[in-house]
């Protein structure tokens, strides 16, 4: 069957309105071109809460404690600046990356600083990172 022609019951042939079809198709194309946006790659940093079925161990494994305060960051009680903690955490990750990390965060800390610390922990290979609020 030839394009643009339709077989009818009789001899009459109905032409497909190609110009209108192309107009509609181009309008669709313009719509999609305008509304299309590249997907933004989002990373999700896990900060799991204690699960309901999780039993409390009598002898819990030692944890690496990081405190994120407005003016400084403490790793195992020792104060560092954000630039200084990376080498310190790297050493600890090389020794024991399966060690759980607890990040205690002050309420005034902004998300970008928290993400910076969590991202660093994940990048250095720490498997379990938990976040909790810093009291006081």
């Amino acid at each position: 069957m030839a394009l643009g022609k339709r077989k009818g019951s009789g001899n009459e042939e109905l032409p497909v309105p190609l110009n209108t079809l192309i107009d509609v198709v181009f309008l669709l194309l313009v719509y999609f071109v305008i509304t299309w946006s590249a997907p933004i790659p989002e990373a999700h940093l896990a900060v799991n809460l204690p699960s309901p079925g999780e039993s409390t161990q009598e002898d819990p494994p030692p944890v690496l404690q990081i405190e994120v305060r407005p003016e400084k960051i403490l790793v195992q009680g020792k104060a560092y600046s954000i630039d200084e903690i990376r080498p310190r955490l790297k050493n600890l990750a090389e020794m024991q990356s399966e060690q759980p990390v607890i990040v205690k965060v002050s309420g005034e800390i902004k998300t970008h600083r928290l993400v910076q610390v969590l991202d660093m922990c994940k990048g250095l290979g720490f498997e379990t990172v938990n976040v909790m609020s810093l009291k006081g």
Binding site: E42, A43, H44, L45, V47, N48, S51, V115
Partner: peptide, 8 residues
């Protein structure tokens, strides 16, 4: 209990 914080 599974919480994730999103970042670019």
């Amino acid at each position: 209990y599974r919480v994730k914080i999103s970042a670019i």
